[in-house]
């Protein structure tokens, strides 16, 4: 009994440590990523599933996506402190999805500017109440409106920020994965932080525009980058090869859904028939594929 008690405390203590000691990898000099697991956000992981991280300059640090819950945000903050004593000056949210923004509150203090796509604040406002309700229901997280922290600075097209000897170029992308995707380019290491514009192994999730996403990919494919950081999946060092699987999946959706629409078939038929040749290539296919078909079908009906 006594032993069991001790074991319990050891486990509990270990749990606390595991939570605060976030593992981060330096994928390029001064660029650190915590890699998320390919899981559906749930009551066990509390939404901490995405790749998040930070970039360290000579004077300060830019956080890129703050995490899937406030605790993960605090854990990221602690990880930054272990690596550098430079202060955080920016929190860049690559888009509105909860796994990328729910850690914002950990960084809300004087001297920290929040940056997002020009449509990010609107997306937060449109989805906020729904997200808060879902956080309680699906993630076991008690959040309030105060946790949805809108950007102080909006990126219309491009914005350059200086971390001291390190310039980051932020680009507001047209509607693709979502309608508020922001990419971060670090000139110093030729690294592009693509976030959810790129999924590896984890099925890509469409919450913006299928056609828009394919267009953005077409453009990025022609460019060269030493390192590319996806929102879900491992770091890519053989660009543009890392893009192939996602491109194939999205292209299959486009082709097959267009065929269905031409034939006068309905949404519910497309959901059951389109894209299943891709099933074995992806994790979380069953969780997200039908939704992708639905979103894409609704878009392509109006082209």
């Amino acid at each position: 009994m006594k032993n069991q008690c001790c074991l319990f405390f050891v486990l509990a203590f270990h749990g606390l440590i595991a939570q605060s000691e976030m593992t981060v990898s330096e994928v390029a000099p001064g660029i650190y990523v915590h890699f998320g697991q390919h899981q559906l956000p749930d009551k066990v992981n509390h939404g901490a599933v995405a790749n998040i991280g930070f970039i360290v300059g000579d004077t300060c640090v830019a956080v890129i996506d703050s995490g899937g819950n406030p605790d993960q945000g605090y854990a990221l903050k602690a990880a930054i402190k272990r690596i550098t004593d430079k202060p955080v000056c920016y929190v860049i949210n690559t888009h509105v999805h909860p796994d990328h923004i729910y850690g914002n509150i950990a960084f809300k203090e004087k001297g920290v500017k929040f940056i997002g796509h020009k449509k990010l604040a609107r997306a937060m406002s449109a989805r906020g109440n729904y997200y808060i309700a879902k956080a309680a229901e699906q993630l076991d997280l008690k959040l309030t409106a105060a946790h949805i922290i809108p950007p102080d600075r909006l990126v219309k097209n491009h914005l350059a920020i200086d971390l001291g000897g390190r310039r980051l170029i932020l680009t507001a992308q047209p509607t693709a994965h979502s309608d508020n995707d922001l990419t971060v380019f670090d000139k110093k290491t030729d690294t592009l932080w693509l976030s959810d514009l790129l999924f590896l192994d984890h099925l890509p999730v469409i919450d913006g525009s299928l056609k828009g996403w394919l267009e953005v990919m077409q453009k990025l494919q022609k460019q060269k980058f030493t390192t590319v950081i996806p929102g879900h999946g491992a770091v890519v060092t053989d660009w543009p090869n890392g893009l192939t699987a996602q491109k194939t999946y999205l292209q299959v959706l486009l082709t097959e859904i267009r065929e269905m629409i031409v034939k006068g078939r309905f949404l519910e038929e497309a959901i059951e028939q389109v894209g299943y040749s891709e099933k074995d290539k992806w994790q979380l296919f069953d969780q997200f594929h039908k939704r992708n078909v639905t979103t894409a079908f609704a878009e392509l009906e109006w082209e």
């Binding site: 997200y131 979502s178 469409i206 979103t295």
Partner: peptide, 27 residues
């Protein structure tokens, strides 16, 4: 699917063509 809020994915695209209608008839 908690991150797909109950509104359309691309609000601006929908606003631009607001009011358009299409009929499709079975063959």
């Amino acid at each position: 699917g908690g991150c797909s809020a109950p509104l359309g994915a691309d609000l601006d695209a929908a606003m631009k063509r607001l009011g358009q209608m299409k009929f499709k008839l079975g063959n």
